[in-house]
């Protein structure tokens, strides 16, 4: 009698543990499992649009396994490609597809794990929230230099741009400005984040950021009637779109390989969506 009760209790407890174990392992199953028992570090640099996603992914991985450390630096797409090519980092991010010359020179392997757009932004105080492509070209070339002629207040337009290593700049210049000139009076900022805070602080400024970075601190400008947001990028009506890439020198090895696999897992793609980008798994 007693034995059987104890036995039953033990069995129950055992079952309880089994179920919890199953649940726990189910919730951790898949993407992060491959990181268990690993040790070492992953060095990542390059595109600044990628950083929010990279940070979340790195946090999940490092929380799961304390022996792995992941460092994430910015610098811009050009830097990401150069540094991974020179072997300075394990993964080099770029907000543009690496050029054929770069791919062949360094033997890059390219992984596109999200789709992003580049949106024109102004300060929320600005009344001008819609532009035609030609107006945009004229603003950035310096031809239009006052908000008044666009229906805004009588203030000089402050153009903000990124340095030459920026993939965001490259994509915006090609698809937004049709390779038009950018005035040499433009202010330079060094990352998507810096662009956002510059525009958020300057009521007369105009700039461009990764769509994933647009929040209430800046006002997205509709371009030829199309708002730069996820829906319009997904259905293809917003034209200034690009992929977000992670590149490795040759086939990715070890932890870098696992990191990239994680980016393509359901969990990785959920981070992509959460940070305001379009998932590639759709």
């Amino acid at each position: 009698m007693i034995n059987s009760i104890v036995g039953r209790k033990l069995a129950l407890i055992g079952l309880f543990f089994l179920i919890t174990f199953c649940m726990v392992s189910a919730s951790w199953a898949g993407p992060l499992d491959s990181f268990s028992g690993e040790k070492g570090d992953i060095k990542i640099s390059g595109g600044t649009a990628h950083i929010p996603v990279m940070k979340d992914a790195a946090k999940n991985i490092m929380n799961y396994n304390n022996d792995i450390s992941i460092s994430i630096a910015g610098g811009g797409s050009g830097v990401g490609i150069k540094q991974v090519g020179e072997g300075l980092v394990d993964i080099g991010n770029s907000g543009r597809k690496p050029k054929d010359g770069e791919i062949s020179k360094y033997g890059l392997k390219i992984f596109k794990w999200a789709i992003d757009g580049v949106g024109v932004v102004v300060n929320p105080e600005n009344k001008v929230n819609s532009l035609k492509t030609q107006q945009l070209v004229d603003i950035f070339s310096g031809k239009i230099d006052n908000w008044k002629s666009l229906g805004g207040i009588d203030k000089q337009i402050n153009v903000y741009t990124r340095d030459n290593s920026s993939g965001t700049r490259e994509v915006f210049w090609k698809k937004g400005l049709n390779e038009g000139e950018i005035t040499n009076k433009a202010n330079f900022v060094v990352s998507n984040g810096a662009m956002k805070s510059a525009i958020a602080n300057d009521p007369y400024g105009i700039g461009y950021v990764s769509v994933g970075h647009i929040d209430e601190s800046v006002l997205p400008v509709t371009l030829d009637g199309v708002l730069p947001d996820i829906t319009n990028i997904k259905n293809g009506s917003y034209k200034i779109a690009r992929g977000l890439y992670s590149n490795t020198k040759g086939e990715p090895q070890g932890l870098a390989k696992k990191f990239i696999e994680y980016m393509f897992s359901t969990e990785g793609q959920q981070i992509v969506i959460k940070q305001g980008f379009v998932s590639v798994n759709q």
Partner: peptide, 24 residues
């Protein structure tokens, strides 16, 4: 751009190094 007045934006040699060293 070469600044015309003190109210114009400008770049110094040091910040130029910081900006370009990332480029290429």
């Amino acid at each position: 751009a070469v600044p015309d007045s003190i109210f114009e934006s400008a770049r110094t040699l040091t910040s130029h190094i910081a900006l370009v060293i990332a480029a290429d």
